[in-house]
Design a protein around this nucleic acid. Sequence first.
DNA 1: ATGGCTACAGCATGTAGA
Length: 255
Amino acid sequence: MRLSTLNVNSVRKRAPHVRQFLESAKPDLLFLQELKCKTEEFPAEAFAGSGYEFHAVGQPGGRNGVAVLARIPFKVVAEGLPGEEEDTHARYIEVEATGGRFAGIYLPNGNSGGAEGYAYKLRWMERLRAIATDRLDDGIPFAVLGDFNVCPTELDLAPGALPPTDALVRPESRSAFRALTHLGLTDAVRALHPGERLYTYWDYGPAFETNRGLRIDHALLSPELAERLERAEIDYALRAQEQPSDHTAVTITLR
DNA sequence: ATGGCTACAGCATGTAGA
């Protein structure tokens, strides 16, 4: 089984990239973030005949947005993260497939909106911890993939790429990420590539060619899925294409 | 430490991304 995640930075701009990625990586499930469109504006026609079905959760105004594309049967079980009734951000989708639960997330960046913007990020991470606890308690295979907007350690960003006050590296952000792994979730890329400097995001401009990047797109696996972990790959060719997203895709392969 | 990019809403520039 293969699971992928990609912050697409506008799915309407990048639908051809996504289609090509599906054809090369052949994931069973692909989670997308930053659709930047309303639900009904998802470019369905771009995926006709691809063998993939999709479910999109857009947002009025075109911010945020998450989706799943699947070549296996699936059922959407959540279109939002529980815990704040007034939260209208399109940042969470969860599906049931092959007897497991798979969540795609777009975790708040936390650098905009001042102190409240950062507080929202931390609350969101606590809500994610709560739902992950529930899923692990259920004892079913569970994974969370997406743009976590956290560099878990100093190995996960190019030296000097961000100031220490940035919401992606602040101690509270890293502590909240560790709270997820301490539940028993495995960071798939790090588990298979310990000690390596690996990035999944590079700013527009010279950052990609100089490999001045960040590792902020992650796949966290419940213990039974982690036992089956075989490969974890970052798709550099996708980021090297014309007019790319500033992120690239992460794909994990499970036995 | 960010906007020198990029995308979007909407039509001038503000907001957001990370």
